[in-house]
Amino acid sequence: MRTLDGGTMSEHVKRATISDVAQHAGVSKAAVSKVLRGAYGVSGTMKARVEASMATLGYRPSALARGMRGSSFTLGVFVVDLHNTFMSVLIEGIRTEAELNGYQVFIGEASRGLAQQRQMIEAMVDRKMDGIVLIAPFGTADDLEEIARGTPTVVLGRHGPSHSYDTVASDDIAGSALIVDHLVSLGHRRIAHLMQVGREKNESGMPQVVRAKGYVDAMVRNGLEQEIDVLEGRWSQEGGRSAAGLMVQRKNPPTAVHAGADMAALGVLAGFHEAGVRVPEDFSVVGYDNVFAASLPQVGLTSVDQSGIEMGALAAKLLVERIQGRQEAVSTVVAPRLVVRRTTAPPPGV
């Protein structure tokens, strides 16, 4: 069968092979394979030459063939709750870095607890994914060690160190301190903190545990140990709205809140709006994550930025290194920064 340009259909559908790329680039097939795997020891010149030949020939590696050679070039990303928009920021960073290294990313969610998390991770392993990134997972450190002993793993959001997996986390102690110190500098003393409490037990190293510790430490350092006020709830819009209702009902309510996460802070703002509480004239609100909605002019939420895209990209980079053979564990902490907007101001009467 002939095509419009006079060629045959078989000529047009013939798929370029590694041998074709090697011949076109003037290198060995082994060199092309190293470039495809992102192996160490490949020079920038070699990589550029092979990639140029791939582009010219329209070469696409066969996922099946790669899988048969021991690599599927796929990464699994597990996340507890996709309703939290900060998760999408982390995933964007992971996906961008993974694709630069020739990997596809598949995402799984398990919001119903530890049992569903185990099923999801087992499904990723069964599908021969080369490695997994666990974003703020449930379970103990021993649970995570067991997963990592069988599959290259990076844990994003929980603090390390670990023997078998890498960790990437924001410095949540410092982030909470930035919030408390900012509010104290404005004149606040009665500062509350909303701590995430969900279906599963809070384990050491989880961000909610570390941020709460950072809040308590900062309150004590500022001489406000008598004003420590931790409310347990959910880092969600409904959780924030409920916390707002509880604070408004108090005889002597706080004048500011470290909401723990932006999703909760947005819920607090909604709850205060419904109750007729003015922000920041009557009450100051600070979030954590600096999601896109926080920067909207009509919101203007003061928040802690923990460089989500960079954290995600770093997690993917570490995972690729693990897949390629690195075994020593790496524990990385990213420095946060406070972004001050219009939801914080001096308390009434100051």
Rank of each mutant, 00 (worst) to 15 (best):
E203I: 09
E203H: 11
R199Y: 13
V197P: 01
L186Y: 03
A98V: 10
R112Y: 03
L194G: 04
L194R: 07
V79S: 11
Q116W: 02
V180P: 15
S204Y: 03
T140N: 09
L114W: 02
L194H: 01
I147W: 09
I147M: 08
A169L: 04
V80H: 09
H83W: 05
L90A: 03
I107F: 01
G70R: 00
Q104P: 01
N101R: 15
S204C: 03
R199E: 13
A136Q: 08
V168A: 05
V184Y: 06
M195T: 14
S185M: 00
T167A: 01
L82D: 11
L156F: 03
R127W: 10
P137E: 05
L90E: 11
E99Y: 00
S111K: 12
A115W: 01
E122K: 14
D143R: 08
H182Y: 06
S170I: 07
T151E: 00
G102M: 00
F138I: 03
M87T: 12
V184H: 10
Q119A: 13
L156H: 04
M68Q: 14
A148E: 04
D172C: 07
G205W: 01
Q117R: 09
Q117H: 09
L178P: 02
N84D: 13
G70V: 09
A115L: 04
D126S: 15
I191S: 01
Q104F: 14
T153C: 08
I132Y: 10
S204D: 12
H188D: 02
L144T: 11
I121R: 00
A98I: 11
G108S: 11
H188F: 05
H163K: 07
I147Q: 00
F86Y: 14
M195C: 06
S62E: 10
R60Y: 03
F78R: 04
A192K: 00
T140I: 10
Q104N: 15
R60H: 13
M120F: 08
H193A: 07
R189K: 15
N101A: 15
V180D: 11
S111V: 07
D166E: 12
D143W: 10
M87H: 08
M120G: 02
G93Y: 04
D172R: 06
R66M: 12
H163L: 09
L90I: 04
I173M: 06
L156P: 03
L144H: 13
I107E: 07
G160S: 09
I147D: 01
V89P: 05
D166H: 08
S185H: 00
N84V: 06
G150N: 12
L186M: 10
K128A: 06
A123Y: 02
S88I: 01
F78V: 05
T140F: 12
S71I: 02
Q104M: 12
G102D: 07
R69E: 11
S62F: 05
H188N: 13
T151G: 03
V125F: 12
L90T: 11
V155K: 07
